[in-house]
């Protein structure tokens, strides 16, 4: 599971695993694996929400060379 997924990509993969689970025709092992994977993507999404750091930075124009 590569960590550089965007929020949207991780969410999409999470939904894929949920659909598999909700379809209900997975073996027990298959289901457990899907649950684990889903949990990973859920973690990525949650972390992405807090990845942004509240800050305001003013990058003013360098004075033209005198």
């Amino acid at each position: 599971m590569s960590q550089d997924l965007t929020y949207e990509q991780a969410l999409e993969k999470l939904d894929e695993q949920l659909k598999l689970l909700e379809d209900g025709n997975l073996s027990l092992e298959g289901a457990l694996k899907a649950v684990d994977e889903a949990r990973v993507y859920l973690k990525i999404c949650t972390e992405r929400l807090d990845a942004a750091r509240k800050k305001i930075e003013i990058r003013s124009e360098p004075e033209p060379a005198e």
Partner: peptide
Amino acid sequence: NMGIVVYP
């Protein structure tokens, strides 16, 4: 918690 950068 959104980061903002201002370029005046």
